[in-house]
């Protein structure tokens, strides 16, 4: 096969890897915002999750325990957000910002205090990480042109978390559109008063969505720290939670388009990595910073006018208060 085809395969493969944390965070935001709770704390929850995963996996060399720790830490933060914005009816943006600031500070301080490596967690051995899985027949299929190559290069050879993330997309669709919980969740994000008068608890539904967001952010954080890398690095989420929010708007709060949006942003990232240091005819070498800014610029451009009108769930960001009249 031609070299160009190989390059495309490699780019797609690395785009998948890079889009997975976005996808976890984006789906997390989808549950939360579909239930009417704005979640700009995706970033912070992923970060604390990544730290917990890195820390626990470095002490107990088992990635599943690392994942569990990530989920627990992230859900704890989600509950803080839930308490502030659902029970106390606080401002959801402020609460989300607080979570981001808290996670960023806390991980740096605890990391330094516990491990003394400048905020990092110790380098993880292979047994403490989620390693790449070679799917059945991948080696054999490798020699089959096109289909076999795609199977080997792109589909096989990812960690189990990648497959979980991809599986979550149809699962989320099913939960939202085919189950009782999903119906209620969507209703509470559009008109909580309708849910309340139907004899259902707005509080309970919103908490369930926020906890779901916490679980998924935990997965995203664990992926960053113990699947993609071999340990936690200070501020390793690097704005992925915000890009995920952009992807959520881009996808108009729907699960299948969310996959597309996250993949697109992942692809941009992959391309940015690949063209670093490459000299372009007429331009010369493009500064790394300019390339790294590319996904953000594209996000702004796309959100500014190329996706049509993205109507958020009607009650998003509004604390539910029985009106007293």
């Amino acid at each position: 096969m031609s070299e160009a085809f190989q390059i495309i395969l490699l780019a797609v493969d690395s785009a998948i890897r890079l889009s997975v944390p976005l996808l976890f965070a984006c789906l997390a935001g989808l549950y939360s915002e579909r239930a009417g709770v704005v979640d700009i704390g995706l970033e912070g929850k992923m970060l604390i999750g990544a730290f917990a995963a890195g820390a626990v996996a470095s002490l107990v060399p088992n990635p599943w325990l690392g994942l569990l720790a990530a989920v627990m830490a992230s859900v704890l933060f989600a509950l803080v957000h839930g308490f502030a914005s659902i029970s106390q009816r606080g401002n959801q943006i402020v609460s989300g910002v607080a979570i981001n600031v808290l996670a960023s500070g806390l991980t740096a301080i605890l990391g330094n205090a516990w491990f003394g490596q400048g905020g990092r967690t110790p380098q993880l051995p292979s047994g403490a990480r989620f390693n790449e899985i070679t799917l059945p027949l991948a080696e054999a299929a490798r020699s089959v042109p096109l289909v076999g190559e795609i199977y080997y290069q792109v589909i096989s050879g990812h960690s189990v978390l990648v497959y979980i993330a991809l599986g979550l997309v149809p699962l989320t669709w099913f939960l939202l559109y085919r189950t009782r919980w999903g119906l209620r969740l969507r209703a509470v994000g559009e008109n909580p008063a309708a849910v309340d008068t139907a004899g259902l608890s707005v509080t309970r539904l919103r908490y369930s969505a926020v906890i779901m967001a916490g679980i998924l952010c935990g997965f995203g954080g664990a992926y960053l720290a113990i699947a993609q890398s071999a340990g936690f690095i200070t501020d390793m989420t690097a704005g992925k939670g915000f890009i995920a929010l952009a992807a959520l708007i881009f996808a108009k709060w729907r699960p299948l388009p969310a996959l597309g949006a996250c993949f697109l942003f992942g692809l941009l990232d992959a391309v940015a990595l690949r063209i670093q240091g490459v000299s372009f005819p007429g331009i010369g070498q493009v500064p790394v910073q300019a390339i790294q800014a590319l996904p953000y610029i594209l996000t702004v451009v796309l959100l500014a006018g190329f996706i049509g009108k993205a109507t958020p769930p009607k009650a998003v960001g509004v604390p539910y208060l029985k009106d007293r009249s």
Partner: peptide
């Protein structure tokens, strides 16, 4: 209610069944 308690993006059936879905799955 004076101000209707309906979810605007839902169909009539979805609105009527909200809270009385008759099982974990909606079909």
């Amino acid at each position: 209610h004076q101000h209707f308690m309906l979810v605007e993006t839902f169909t009539v059936v979805e609105n009527v069944m909200l809270g009385a879905e008759g099982g974990a799955f909606t079909a």
